[in-house]
Simulated scan of single mutants.
Amino acid sequence: MRLLGVGYEGLMDMGHGFALNTYDTILENIHSASSAVFDTVLSIAVNQEKEILQEQGKAENEFTISGGGTCKKRGFSSLFGVSTLITKYTVKVVDSCVMNSFCAGYNLLENKKNSDPVGYAGWLAGSEENCTANHTGISGKMEIDAVVKMVSRSVNKHQVRYTTYIGDGDSKTFKGILKAEPYGKDVVKKECVGLVEKRMGTRLRNAKKSNKAIGGKGAGKLTDKLIGEMTKYYGLAIRRHPESIEEIRKDIWATFYHKISTDSNPQHQNCPAGESIWCKWRRAEFLGKAEQFKHDKPPLSEAV
């Protein structure tokens, strides 16, 4: 029940059988046990990533990671935020950080400042140890501060360095890492292909919304189905040629010309050739049957 966020007053009738101090002691035990298990799981994930890097002949103490965060509330008004880091190959969490702009203890004693001045003074004397708040400023900065904190402690926590950061298009987090200089040199940033692909779909939908003439149903229209296919092809072009910008550009234009081709004006010159290609027209051409082939747009499953 506690892991579901239910407090002392919400524990049905269970909370009435023991004092609040006893409940707090139970929570401390739960927290200690959960933290121990969590640290063990993180250690296992780190070792698995090291093994994969070693098998590939890469430095086992240099990780490629990606970070993300979530808040208790939508927007930028939350007092609590949780951020995690995952590795490239195992795709498992290797660190997590909770950012908190609110301290329940301070808030409780602040209300009793006048009625219990001795207790209030005692709490303030040890406020650095007792206070649970670890973030100041706007909620939108929680993820940035959390990721920077986790990257900065990677050597002490796991004896590894996060030398490459896969970003989600938001450069603020990466700028925060560079400013912190956790390893005395720059961390390399790479863009997440999935999010780049997603942005293509968003822009196509925005283009359709702002230009009513290109939308609708029928041949030559920018339908939702076509947007889905174009988005997927765009991502595939990047994934197939991660080391060559020219090949990426060629595949993207191949998709464009392939989609505007007709029986009377086929434009498959940029489509890749070979027996396992996604373009049916080029496949027929490769097999010597192009003259008998009617223009047909391949289903998305073939491209994938």
Rank of each mutant, 00 (worst) to 15 (best):
M1R: 07
R2P: 09
L3C: 10
L3G: 09
G7K: 01
L11H: 07
H16I: 10
A19S: 15
A19V: 14
N21I: 14
N29L: 14
S32D: 12
S32P: 03
S35K: 15
A36G: 09
V37E: 14
I44Q: 12
I44S: 06
V46P: 05
E51G: 07
E51P: 03
L53Q: 05
L53P: 00
E55H: 12
Q56A: 13
G57R: 07
A59I: 13
E62R: 06
G67A: 12
K73E: 03
F76E: 15
F76M: 15
S78T: 00
G81V: 06
G81N: 01
V82E: 12
L85E: 01
L85I: 12
T87N: 04
T87H: 05
V93S: 10
V94A: 03
S96Y: 14
C97Y: 10
C97V: 15
V98W: 14
S101G: 13
Y106E: 13
Y106P: 09
E110A: 10
A121V: 13
W123C: 06
S127G: 14
N130E: 13
N130L: 15
T132F: 11
H135A: 02
G137T: 03
G137I: 02
I138K: 12
K141I: 12
E143Y: 04
I144C: 06
I144S: 03
A146L: 04
V147R: 01
M150D: 00
M150P: 01
V151K: 01
S152K: 08
K157W: 06
H158Q: 05
R161W: 01
Y162N: 01
G169D: 02
G169N: 07
K172Y: 10
K172P: 05
K175R: 08
I177S: 05
L178H: 10
L178N: 08
E181D: 14
P182D: 00
D186P: 09
E191V: 00
C192Q: 08
E197L: 07
K198D: 12
T202M: 08
T202Q: 09
R203M: 05
L204W: 00
R205K: 09
N206Y: 13
N206P: 04
A207H: 13
K208N: 04
K209C: 11
S210C: 06
K212Y: 07
G216H: 01
G216P: 03
K217D: 08
K221Y: 05
K221L: 07
K221C: 09
T223F: 05
T223E: 07
T223A: 05
I227P: 02
I227K: 02
K232F: 08
Y233L: 05
G235D: 08
L236V: 07
A237Y: 00
I238Y: 03
H241D: 01
E243T: 11
E246G: 11
E247C: 06
I252F: 06
A254V: 04
T255E: 04
F256Y: 14
T262Y: 10
D263Y: 11
P266D: 10
Q267K: 12
Q269E: 13
C271L: 03
E275G: 09
I277Q: 03
C279A: 04
K280Q: 14
W281C: 11
W281L: 14
A284N: 09
A284M: 06
L287M: 10
A290F: 04
Q292D: 11
K294T: 13
D296K: 14
K297L: 09
P298F: 04
P298R: 00
P299N: 10
L300Y: 07
E302W: 13
A303K: 12
